[in-house]
Design a protein around this nucleic acid. Structure first.
Lengths: 106, 106
DNA sequence: CCCTAATGCCTACGTTGTAGGCAAAATAAA
DNA sequence: TTTATTTTGCCTACAACGTAGGCATTAGGG
């Protein structure tokens, strides 16, 4: 089973379609999910996701900018996509029909 | 921030509208999310959610069945509902528009 | 060359996830 | 009334995930 934060990282990487690396993935999380993550934290998660086979990575060429060190680009694997589907199905099953109950309490 | 599994437990409890206890919540998780959980594991999570203020509990009267020990019923608090809303917003933001990308890969 | 900027990675620890087994409480059976 | 069986709650221990600070590496600018 995939963790909640891993799921988010995977989704961010998926949206960037193989062209994302740590910095852009981090931005994605910040902007789309309003979630702040320390840089180091993200690298740890990316590494774990790759070791589980949900992500694959490749080193790019250095970019012609100041401090433009080579970036590690991440791509979601088929296994990763399936994991995302599963976790989505699980959460959707639990949410189904709950909007009304939510309103009843709020 | 609330964890992924805690979120599921909270949703199961929410659906049962205060009339759920460990056994029924566990069934809910199994049936709606296809998620098997050991009994002990669930009690731990319920306890943690209550200590964080996302759940409140009350002991019921014994039921007139064989082994009908008193049950601890759980109810999602306002704080819990808000936590659910937040986590939903975060994940929805990341999923938005991704169904097409998902299909492109599959 | 030294400085600064961008990125990757190591290390350590707090939090959440998971389950096995024991204990208690209640009825059924003997 | 004693013993067995069932249902449920809870304790304990460990694995996995979440989180961040700081160091290292590589690149261009002065």
């Amino acid at each position: 089973m995939i963790g909640g934060f891993e799921q988010m990282v995977l989704l961010a990487a998926l949206r960037l379609e193989g062209g994302g690396y740590a910095v852009t993935i981090r931005q994605e999380l910040q902007e789309r999910a309003g979630r702040h993550v320390a840089r180091g934290a993200l690298y740890t998660v990316l590494e774990r996701l790759e070791s589980k086979g949900y992500l694959s990575s490749r080193m790019g060429d250095p970019s012609p900018e100041r401090g433009g060190r080579s970036r590690r680009y991440y791509k979601v694997t088929t296994l990763g996509v399936n994991a995302l589907k599963d976790s989505k199905d699980a959460i959707v099953g639990l949410w189904q029909g709950l909007e009304s109950v939510l309103g009843k309490i709020t």
